[in-house]
Design a protein around this nucleic acid. Sequence first.
DNA 1: CCAAAAGTGTTCTTATTACACCCATGC
DNA 2: GCATGGGTGTAATAAGAACACTTTTGG
Lengths: 236, 236
Amino acid sequence: MNPSSANVAERRLAPPSLAISTVIFALRPSEKSGRPTLWLPLVRRIREPYKDMWALPGGPLAHDESLQDAASRNLRETTGLTPHYLEQLYAFGGLHRSPTQRVVSIVYWALVQPTEAALADESENVRWFRADRVDELAFDHKAIVEYALWRLRNKMAYGSIAYHLLGEYFTLAQVREVYEAVLDRQLDPANFRRHIKATPEIEETGEYLQGGKHRPPRLYRFTGTPGLGPDNRSTP
Amino acid sequence: MNPSSANVAERRLAPPSLAISTVIFALRPSEKSGRPTLWLPLVRRIREPYKDMWALPGGPLAHDESLQDAASRNLRETTGLTPHYLEQLYAFGGLHRSPTQRVVSIVYWALVQPTEAALADESENVRWFRADRVDELAFDHKAIVEYALWRLRNKMAYGSIAYHLLGEYFTLAQVREVYEAVLDRQLDPANFRRHIKATPEIEETGEYLQGGKHRPPRLYRFTGTPGLGPDNRSTP
DNA sequence: CCAAAAGTGTTCTTATTACACCCATGC
DNA sequence: GCATGGGTGTAATAAGAACACTTTTGG
């Protein structure tokens, strides 16, 4: 049996390997307008296949960690960040995702706060990209990012998720900017503020944001629960 | 190294094994009222762990089949059915789901038509249960069934999914019965029919259902697409 | 004719949208 | 005082719930 047929046999017989990857979203100011836009960190592959291409942070699942812990860990390892929101996205298991072996990837998606995101590690092999402008990535990661973005938009339109992209205190205009950045359309400020104020998880504080050029806006706080999904006992 | 420490070492070092399971829903007439209710087939375990307990149909992932194909296969193997709707539910990967080894299960959920479900294989080791009355199952399968049921209810409230539990032709009252069975509450017939007729995927036929005791209701047809999820290029 | 489900109309309530307007601050 | 974003009011429209009413069948 020569080496190449050994590889073929190995591939046929070995069980599919299991990996965890994470799509990490954070707000950063756009270079041009300065308005907040969605970004995500990618890592450069240093090995074949897809050597030198950008890919989602990820890696194998350790024997003694849960799926979510693994996602949390590779988020911390690549960016130094801890997520304020972390949820399973999907398990991708197509036969030809990787040219060298069969890989099943369980992908999570995360939201991190902008104050943290600004401090995130960046290096030769870790760089942030605009979420709506990713070019070709390794494996099927471009499709995964697009799906994660679709899911984020969907959740934002229904659930109370935007707050996980903001700090503890925020103005209603900041919440609106998050919606506008993610959904990519303008929203009526008057109606939007009423809409948000109607959600019970939003609490008015006595504080105001000082230092702006105009009337100081009131600061609010989010009192809802981050957790979702069957593992966290709630609603995906 | 004695056998028991060998097992421990094996468990620590072996990668988590990967399995596919499926929650299969179908409508069947209730024994009492005769009204349609939700049922699902379970299989009896013939080996440890959880020997003799009921469990979701499932098994390992073959090296040359996609995740969805595997789900479709174990659906066919246990019940003889082909699903009219099949979608990924969630990947369960808790550390202690199985007492003997670490198992990550990628779970799908399916809807099958009642005409088929009536013919489904049933045997000593395959039996149908009412979906809202499952008792203790093997592993974490009870929680999985409850989560699948939650997801079905959620999708039914928003999307066009009820039709996959019905045959090709159906009356609006039958659609309403599906909603009432799944959501477990009465719906106003007048408002419900308007709501359904407003969906563009519902097509009126010239046919009427004959043989009833009263005025023959018109038959309708569903013209929408079943597919969802990133693998099928659409919307979960 | 009567019972019962099929199917239509009408009213009331509530959410969404568009947009006019007032308020408070820095400059 | 004036420009600007913060914040409130209001009228028009759309969507949903409640329920009275007409139609068509089998018996």
